[in-house]
């Protein structure tokens, strides 16, 4: 278990080194981003989830370089990951710690997937989702189905983007959300493919 301990320490170390933003400002900014998306996409909830994933993806592909660079500069050793378990630990203990200051736990580990449990979610402080509107007749509801909204879906995109840069194609899904009344925030990460290293088309054509 000493390895897992060193990963936690590395995460803490990096968190101490990065510049910080006010967490309330951060949460409120994210909240206004969501309201903006809801307005722009006309309350089309699945599309909003998609857009959040896309935003996250673009963040993720940058994050990973930031993480490597910061660890080089500060002499923090990130263990090389040979198994999915190690990758999961690094995402949970270093990634989340360095960028968000929280750490999360790894669970439900199989050969092809793992789950990340976030006990605290810095994006969702102050947040309460609206109730679904109920129609006059009591049964059918109109208006958006808020239970479909994955408020923190940006995490999924970030994880997807970051892992893709290190040759892991994954799919992420928010399966438990405390905003929707679940006990814990759970992100399920499923490995689809390990991208083979190799010269691509650009190399051939250039």
């Amino acid at each position: 278990m000493s390895k897992s301990g060193s990963i936690t320490a590395a995460g803490q170390n990096l968190w101490a080194k990065v510049p910080k933003a006010n967490s309330e400002l951060f949460a409120l900014t994210y909240g206004s981003l969501i309201t903006e998306l809801i307005r722009d996409y006309d309350q089309n909830i699945p599309e909003i989830n998609n857009q959040l994933d896309r935003i996250g993806y673009s963040i993720g592909v940058r994050c990973i370089d930031e993480l490597f660079a910061k660890s080089e500069v500060n002499g923090v050793q990130i263990p090389s990951c040979r198994e999915l378990r190690e990758t999961a630990e690094v995402v949970a203990k270093i990634g989340f710690r360095m960028f968000l200051g929280v750490s999360c736990d790894v669970g439900k580990l199989t050969e092809k997937s793992f789950s990340l449990y976030l006990s605290e979610n810095p994006l969702s402080i102050f947040v309460e989702l609206p109730q679904n509107e109920v129609g006059v007749d009591g049964s059918s509801s109109h208006g958006p189905d808020w239970t479909q909204l994955k408020y923190s879906n940006v995490y999924c995109g970030v994880i997807r983007g970051a892992l893709e840069q290190v040759n892991l194609k994954v799919e992420c899904e928010f399966v438990g959300d405390m905003l929707q009344g679940d006990d814990v925030n759970e992100i399920k990460v499923e490995v689809k493919e390990v991208i083979a290293d190799g010269a691509g088309e650009d190399y051939q054509e250039e």
């Binding site: 940058r62 370089d65 930031e66 490597f68 660079a69 500069v73």
Partner: peptide, 16 residues
């Protein structure tokens, strides 16, 4: 890589 590439290129808004 750490101090110039990441600072100037990766953080550029045009980066993908």
């Amino acid at each position: 890589y750490s101090n110039i590439w990441v600072e100037c290129v990766v953080r550029s808004p045009m980066y993908s």
